[in-house]
Amino acid sequence: MPVTEPVKQKKPGRGPAKCTEFNKLRKHGKIPLKISDGEMAPCCENVEMFTTRISWILKHNADMSYYRWTDVPKADKDELIERVRGDLELDWDLYNHRMAVMKALHKRFSAFHCGLHKKYLSYGSHEEALASGSILVNPLVWAKLCERWGSDSFKKISNQNRENRKKHNINHKAGRKSFVRILEEKKEMVEKMNSLEPEKRTEESVAAIFREVLGHKAGYAKGLGEMVIPESTRERDRQRDKEYATLVERHQKDAEYHKPTVEVMKGDMIKMMERQLETDKILRWLLAE
């Protein structure tokens, strides 16, 4: 009697996201978002919904055959942006609102690509992956991606990146800067803040200390992450020139105000000197007698 192998049952999973909570709120209008000045990410209770919706828009409308987000044509990016703007309350005149959407699209595009690659690696061979496909993208896109992932050049780069990541014992999040240097900078910033008088410990003072200790880098606030818009050098110089101009104008007004008094004092000094000269002449005459 032949022995039949038991059929393996697939473990239940979450399945594709359906944006149920989003659809409930969307019935009442666009989803409200709060993006504070100087930041490029939402800071409200709808943050997760913001990320989820952008992921959904990408998965259903983006052409994932492009290797990088920077390779996606501008027309395609504009279409995706319009879909995001159609669902979320955004002030598109504000730079940080525009950058919040662009950065989120960029990150979720890369994350979706990474997920597709993991799906490709889960198959036993390149041929099996190519034949099985994926429900997340259409067959033509999947074939193009498989062709890239199966190439020797991609495998070489992927293997090298994998080996490099294995050497990391700690997930370092500060670039090339060591933890020791981070602690030193923190200590230095605390000492500088403590040296200030309580009334001078303002947000401007904190920002100035950050710039002084951490240094400057165009388009990026060191130590504050990529979601914080830094104060540009040009804007800082413009503000400083404005303060100097205000200071000069105030001194000029003070000089004009005190000019009559100074003229009177000069006249009095001249009279005093003339009297002194007359007194000296009289004294010399008396001594001569």
Results as ranks from 00 to 15, higher is better:
A255M: 10
L247E: 14
L136V: 10
S125I: 09
Q252D: 13
I182S: 01
S132E: 09
V206M: 08
C146P: 01
S205H: 01
L130G: 00
Q252Y: 12
N164K: 14
R201Q: 13
E127N: 11
I135V: 12
A218V: 09
P198G: 03
E199C: 05
D254F: 08
L140M: 09
R211C: 03
R236I: 01
W149I: 04
D241E: 15
R240D: 05
H172C: 08
A245Q: 15
I182H: 02
T261P: 00
A143N: 13
R236P: 00
K242D: 10
N159P: 01
P230L: 01
R176N: 11
E184S: 02
N159A: 13
V206C: 07
R162I: 04
A143C: 11
A143D: 15
I135W: 07
R250W: 07
D237C: 11
T233E: 09
R250A: 15
M227Y: 12
E249N: 13
G223I: 03
T202H: 00
A245R: 15
L140R: 07
R148I: 09
G223Y: 01
Y257S: 08
V141A: 13
E185S: 05
R236Y: 00
E199A: 12
S205I: 00
N164L: 13
E231A: 04
K192V: 00
P139C: 05
R236M: 05
R211A: 09
K156Y: 09
S158R: 13
D152K: 15
I157M: 11
A255N: 09
S178C: 07
E197F: 00
K144P: 01
N138S: 07
C146T: 03
K167A: 10
R201G: 01
K187G: 12
H258E: 13
K253D: 08
R148P: 02
S195F: 03
G150R: 04
G124M: 07
S232E: 11
H168T: 05
S205M: 03
A129D: 01
L140S: 10
E147R: 12
P198W: 04
W142V: 05
Y123Q: 08
N169S: 09
M193F: 12
A218I: 06
R201N: 03
L196K: 13
A174N: 14
M193T: 04
E203Y: 02
E263L: 14
G219K: 03
S205D: 00
E226Q: 10
L183D: 11
C146A: 06
